[in-house]
Nucleic acid binder design. Structure first.
Length: 581
RNA sequence: GGAAUGGUAGUUCAAUGGUAGAAUGCGUGCUUGUCGGGCAUGUGGUUGCGGGUUCGAGUCCCGUCCAUUCCGCCA
């Protein structure tokens, strides 16, 4: 070892020891006769002090040091005369008698400090420098701790970690596949897994009973702050269980993580039907920290000759606490925000409940004081509140109001990073109508079992069939989701039929799974957590990029290694592929 | 595929259509208790790229590229 200690461990109890430290020069402060040098490593920061009056060689070395030089320093631990109580090593310093430069460094393009001056693009390009910064390193250490606790918890419950292949088969359902050409099988391709879904079900058929894996998944879709082309799932599956068992065990996992990693105790997670989530929050992943449940006003608004409400399928609003003083300008601004193409609302009606008890709306021409009093009662509003109302087609207006609710929550600072509000959303629909293709798609995936009592609806009202499917949501973020699977060949065939597959197509794509179901498949189900998102929630971040060591940007590029990139002609020839760009 | 915002010194940003600046970094000198060191001084620019309007463009217009966020998309 080149060092005797790390830069984070020496304290007042080590006085007098002769030590050798290795690390990076964080900062050097030359005061003339003496020089202070902060040396940093993964564990912390220790100050070296040099008497540069008495030692000419040491002075020359000290003066040649630049930021991020890698050095080895030897000296004695002494108590500081003026202490820095902001850092754990701040009571001591090393009186350096020898400094060796292990490697010089170019001046980094941005400051390697907690509050860096570097922009995102630059930090991405020099990711290895960004990773030296405390906040990013702490995120990765948090992630490590969480992964260890996941393994500890699941291992304790007899789960077995099994690796599944990364070169698999492309399937038409779901996201776009990343595809890998096969040199040995010209003209044929592997696909990277969107998830290990079918493999974990086959492991259940194999009798593994309780499986998990912390595993990379790949989806070739457009990216967001919380979506990377390759991301990590905590993927789990169990046999001989009910939905209740899954919810119980994985609520337990989540509580275990909060307890051991953040020291936070969470109460039992509330549960909500998908239908209620949509009706009360306009979202299948409601942020229940915000309050502001939707209030439907059809009965109180129709038949007063106000065309917008009369012609609307749904009139629905939220009550925003304490915002009655919003100015006309602020309300207009909100209305404009709602009209942006991303939201697409046509307008907004408001009703102020003044602190003096008066009610004032933007539709006073059509609604008298009695009407507004009834509205306020429906909203459970108090003086000082502001009621915001939208009208239109049910699905659209709920979605728009859901966005408005989140925006108001943000404006009122209700989206606090240190408050955690988990819940289960259950009873998702089995199928979802797809306008583009003009047919039903599996909302979760094609292996999800319908609720037995709803199977009869498959032929008459496919959109109303509910699934044994569930999501875990924390603070408005979808953290995980799963379902009880189909384990019966006939029912699986029926599902494929309803999803528009011919029997031949189903056999070609998923024959291996349906064949397996004929050899004794146990009832089974599972769940997968988005590990990156879970880490970002724990770290208090909106983006998952900084819980990933080497993330890609929103064009799917890695700016550090500069990829994707072209490949040599010879490689293309060998793979028997040609591009058309 | 679409929308919004941005691109100016190494970096982060400013700059009525009229001489491109600040902070920080970096260099040099001085400074014995700093820890956001202090003082002095210096260095630093193809204003993303290509067109156009104008006497004159960082600024206005068109196109393009890049970045960030969002919509669509993500079983």
């Amino acid at each position: 070892m080149l060092r005797t200690h790390t830069c984070g461990e020496l304290t007042i109890s080590d006085l007098g020891q002769t030590v050798t430290l290795c690390g990076w020069v964080q900062k050097s402060r030359d005061l003339g006769g003496m020089t202070f040098i902060d040396v940093r490593d993964r564990y912390g920061l220790t100050q070296l002090v040099l008497n540069t009056d008495t030692d000419a060689t040491l002075r020359e070395t000290a003066r040649s040091l630049g930021r991020e030089f890698v050095i080895k320093a030897t000296g004695q631990v002494q108590e500081r005369t003026s202490k820095n109580l902001k850092i754990p090593t701040g009571e001591i310093e090393i009186v350096a008698t020898d400094i060796e430069i292990l490697n010089a460094a170019k001046i980094p393009p941005f400051l390697i400090e907690d509050e860096t001056d570097g922009g995102e693009e630059l930090r991405a390009k020099f990711r290895y420098l960004d990773l030296r910064r405390n906040p990013i390193r702490n995120n990765l250490m948090l992630r490590h701790k969480m992964a260890q606790e996941v393994r500890k918890y699941l291992d304790g419950l007899n789960f077995i970690e099994v690796e599944t292949p990364v070169l698999i088969k492309s399937t038409p359902e779901g996201a776009r596949d990343f595809v890998v050409p096969s040199r040995m099988n010209p003209g044929e391709f592997y696909a990277l897994p969107q998830s290990p879904q079918t493999f974990k079900q086959l492991l259940m058929v194999s009798g593994f009973d309780r499986y998990f894996q912390i595993v990379k998944c790949f989806r070739d879709e457009d990216l967001r702050a919380d979506r990377q082309p390759e991301f990590t799932q905590i993927d789990c599956e169990m046999a001989f269980i009910t939905q209740e068992d899954i919810l119980h065990i994985f609520e337990g996992l989540t509580r275990h993580l909060f307890k051991t990693v953040k020291g936070i105790h969470l109460d039992k997670f509330p549960r909500m039907d998908y239908a209620d989530a949509m009706r009360l929050y306009g979202s299948d992943k409601p942020d229940i920290r915000l309050g502001m449940e939707f209030v439907e006003l059809n009965d109180l608004t129709k038949g007063k000759n106000f065309g917008i409400f009369d012609n609307a399928e749904l009139v629905v609003g939220i009550n925003v606490k304490g915002c009655a003083e919003y100015t006309r300008k602020q309300i207009d601004e909100l209305t404009e925000w709602l009209k942006r193409p991303q939201i697409g609302a046509t307008g907004m009606i408001y009703c102020r409940y003044g602190s003096d008890g008066t009610l004032k709306s933007s539709v006073d021409k059509f609604y008298g004081e009695d009407d507004l009093t009834n509205w306020a009662a429906a909203f459970n509003a108090e003086p000082g509140d502001l009621m915001l109302i939208l009208a239109g087609k049910t699905d659209k207006v709920r979605k728009q109001l859901g966005e408005l609710r989140l925006e108001m929550g943000a404006r009122l600072s209700l989206r606090d990073k240190n408050t955690f509000a988990p819940l289960w959303v259950i009873d998702f629909p089995l199928l979802e109508w797809d306008e583009e293709t003009g047919r039903y798609h599996a909302m979760h995936h094609p292996f999800t079992s319908p609720k037995p009592e709803d199977i009869a609806l498959l032929d008459t009202a496919p959109g109303e069939v509910r699934a044994n499917a569930y999501d875990m949501v924390i603070n408005g973020v979808e953290i995980g989701g799963g379902s009880i699977r189909i384990h019966d060949r006939a029912l699986q065939s029926l599902m494929f039929k309803h999803l528009g597959f011919t029997q031949q197509e189903a056999q070609k794509q998923f024959g291996f799974l349906m064949d397996a179901f004929e050899y004794g498949a146990p009832p089974h189900g599972g769940i997968a957590f988005g590990f990156d998102r879970l880490c970002s929630i724990f770290a208090g971040l909106d983006s998952i990029r900084d819980v990933i060591a080497f993330p890609k940007n929103n064009s799917g590029r890695d700016l550090m290694i500069d990829t994707p990139s072209t490949i040599a002609k010879s490689q293309m020839n060998e793979l028997k592929i040609r591009t058309t760009v």
